[in-house]
Amino acid sequence: MTNWIDACGADDIEEEDVIRFDHEGRTFAIYRSPDDNYFCTDGLCSHEQVHLADGLVMDHTIECPKHNGQFDYRSGEALRAPVCVNLATYPVKVEGDRVLIEI
């Protein structure tokens, strides 16, 4: 069963940035794109389990802080080695000034 979780305030994330959100033993990365949309992926890099929230958001990519692997955070697609495995993505909606993710 899926449910919507209140993850953070819309203004908790700067434009073109990412924050970490932990929930019930799982960790997620929540992104705000330069065109002011919100996205959510798994929080750990699929290469070596590093928190992506310490990485760099550029346009619609997230670069991992450990080995600079890159993903498209909208689709989770792995774009540059050493990442080869895509990230899972989760639906996001903004209600009022809150960001909700469906997991």
Partner: peptide
């Protein structure tokens, strides 16, 4: 360029 990208990732890990 392919092998050494992986070798260098290991050097950083």
């Amino acid at each position: 360029p392919v092998s050494w990208r992986w070798s260098h990732a290991r050097h950083h890990t």
